[in-house]
C-alpha cells in the first residue's frame, strides 16, 4: 500500500474501499512455514487434505518475502530467536504473527528451567493471535486463523488514524 496507507479522511468511498482491501487481505493470508518443533506436525496436518487450510485462502510459502502471516510453530530457542526476528523483518507489510502452542506463547514446558528457550516469541516480534495447546490440534490452529481473519477485517488500511 505504501503511499496510500492511512492518508484519507473517512467517507463513504474510502470506507467501502477499506472494506474491500481488508476483505481481500483476510481471505488470502499466505502463511510462512515456520516449523520449529512438534507443533509443526499439527501445522502440516492443518494444511493437509483433512483440514485443508486452502479453504481459508491460506497457502504455505517458504520465503518470508511472499508471506503475510508467520505461524511460529514450536519452541523458539535463543539461537533461533535472532533468526525469527530477522525473518519477521524480511516479510512485507502488512504482516501478522501467530504464536502457535505453549512454547511460542510463553516458553511452555521450558518456562522454569529452559535456560536456552525464549519465554514467548512476543519478546522479539509482535504477536497477533496466541493459540494455546501443547501442541494445539489443527482445529485450534484454524480457530486462531479465523480470529486473525476477523482482526484483519476490522482494519481500515486507507482511513487516516485518529490521534
Amino acid at each position: 500500500m505504501g503511499i496510500l496507507e492511512n492518508k484519507f479522511q473517512d467517507n463513504v468511498v474510502v470506507a467501502k474501499l477499506d472494506k474491500l482491501i481488508s476483505w481481500a487481505r483476510s481471505t488470502s493470508p499466505w502463511y510462512f512455514q515456520f516449523g520449529l518443533a512438534c507443533c509443526a506436525i499439527e501445522m502440516m496436518s492443518a494444511a493437509a487434505s483433512r483440514h485443508d487450510l486452502e479453504r481459508l485462502g491460506m497457502m504455505p510459502r517458504s520465503s518470508p518475502r511472499q508471506a503475510d502471516v508467520m505461524i511460529v510453530a514450536g519452541t523458539v530457542t535463543m539461537k533461533m530467536a535472532l533468526r525469527v526476528k530477522k525473518l519477521y523483518e524480511q516479510m512485507a507489510d502488512p504482516k501478522y504473527v501467530i504464536a502457535m502452542g505453549s512454547c511460542a506463547t510463553s516458553g511452555g514446558p521450558y518456562w522454569q528451567h529452559g535456560y536456552h528457550v525464549l519465554k514467548g516469541v512476543d519478546i522479539v516480534v509482535p504477536v497477533d493471535v496466541y493459540v494455546p495447546g501443547c501442541p494445539p490440534r489443527p482445529e485450534a490452529l484454524i480457530e486462531g486463523l479465523l480470529k486473525l481473519q476477523e482482526k484483519i477485517l476490522e482494519e481500515r488500511p486507507l482511513t487516516r488514524k485518529m490521534a
Binding site: 535463543m78 530467536a81 535472532l82 518456562w111 522454569q112 528451567h113 535456560y115 525464549l118 519478546i123 522479539v124
Partner: peptide, 24 residues
C-alpha cells in the same frame, strides 16, 4: 550449561533471560 556451577547469562543479544522461577 551442564557444569554444576553453571550460571545463566543475564541477556543474550539484548534479550533478557529470566532466571529460574519458584514454582508456577
Amino acid at each position: 550449561p551442564l557444569r554444576k556451577d553453571y550460571e545463566v547469562q543475564e541477556t543474550y543479544h539484548g534479550i533478557a533471560i529470566p532466571k529460574v522461577k519458584e514454582g508456577w
